[in-house]
Design a protein around this nucleic acid. Structure first.
Lengths: 220, 220
DNA sequence: AGTCGTACGCTTACGTCGTAAGCACGTCAA
DNA sequence: TTGACGTGCTTACGACGTAAGCGTACGACT
């Protein structure tokens, strides 16, 4: 009985560290993810984490790839269904982990889950008859749109009706009325209508791109 | 002659501080922008900067809005021409300031240049006959695509032929050959071809969206 | 049963960061 | 001449990432 009432304290592991880091970033934002706080979360000193992580940016890389593992790998013969499903899945995952999109910019070494995911995307497109060049175009267009939407969504204050109203007031109130007439118009007559949800905009742009790709596929 | 050979040292000002911060971030990346280094750059102690900036995130907000001021404000009666021009302008500016896109995620208070810019975008669309709802859709789709592209572009290693080849080797070399067949295919038969430039993909997706919007405009 | 390498977590310490608080000086109006 | 104000500097604090090295407990061998 070397440790009197010491609960066994589950062993650390890279996955446990990554998991805890993601939980912490989800809850408090990426900027408040520090090695020390992560240590506290795991009941461990900060330096102990370096047994599982080479440095903080290795931790971030690992977090990103863990997030990618949450995304459904697309498959199936109907490319539209597959691409739409994957788009929704990416968006759902990125909105669960709002810090992830902004981080992608700085990480240049894709992890295995990321590679597997994108390999599957290309596989679906190629099987559907897209040429190599067209598959590359489609890949780029879809990813740009999805990531861009995910990047903007959390920074927009449109998450509930009252919150939206307050945010619009806060922004518009800073300026002379009439200074931004079109923003005002859209705020008053569109965004402030009850039931408005910015997330609904996602489908519109996605369909635009899918329609365009379908057209390009048949034209070739 | 209280300061012997002291060159007058141009007075500080918020704009000069922001300008210097942007230059520094452009050159060395946003993560190496610190108040102290910015002070050195301006020949001043770090704390002196707080006369012009409330705190660091105020500095970042200011930088973002200064960047927005570089973007051409769209105008004109041909909405397609205007939207294409604005898209190219945004992309050019964001690729000059690679740190800016990733920062947008964390900034929630848009500055005046940002508001003016987006007001002009909506103005062009409304004048062209887009309904309020459709203008909102178009705005969202275009912004998502443009920002998403800008977010991905710097993290992709496709900036010169040799650089691309090396990066592809580095990534692919980490895995058993055949593990990612479609990525390999597209790398070998598309990306590694001489003259490939990822930037060229931008136009394809942009046209997809513009075509879709045109169709939606006429259908309504 | 005894030995020992190794995996794991801890301690201490350094340099850098953002920034609070207050001081010193030059300029200019009264 | 005086004094208020604008401007920049000094000092200091707590938090950060992480380098270097220490103690210990456990599993694999003899």
């Amino acid at each position: 009985m070397s440790h009197p009432n010491a609960e066994p304290r589950a062993r650390l592991s890279r996955d446990r560290v990554l998991e805890a880091a993601i939980t912490l970033a989800d809850a408090a934002g990426i900027e408040s993810l520090t090695m020390r706080k992560l240590g506290v979360e795991l009941g461990v000193e900060a330096m102990s984490l370096y047994r599982y992580v080479a440095h903080k940016s290795d931790l971030l890389d690992g977090m990103i790839d863990t997030v990618f593992r949450e995304i459904d790998v697309p498959s199936g013969t109907d490319w539209r269904v597959a691409m739409r499903g994957r788009a929704e899945s990416v968006r759902a995952v990125l909105s669960r982990h709002r810090w992830a999109t902004g981080l992608m910019e700085s990480r240049t070494t894709p992890g295995p889950a990321n590679l597997r995911h994108h390999d599957a995307v290309l596989g679906v497109l190629r099987s559907a008859g897209f040429s190599i060049a067209m598959a590359a175009h489609a890949y780029s267009a879809l990813d740009s749109y999805i990531y861009g939407f995910a990047l903007q969504e959390p920074s927009l204050p449109f998450h509930s009706d009252e919150e939206t109203a307050q945010a619009v007031q806060a922004i518009m109130g800073r300026f002379a009325s009439g200074q931004y007439p079109h923003l005002t118009e859209i705020a008053v007559e569109h965004v402030l209508k009850p039931g408005y949800d910015y997330g609904d905009e996602f489908a519109f742009g996605l369909d635009l791109i899918l329609d365009g790709l379908e057209h390009a596929l048949h034209a070739s």
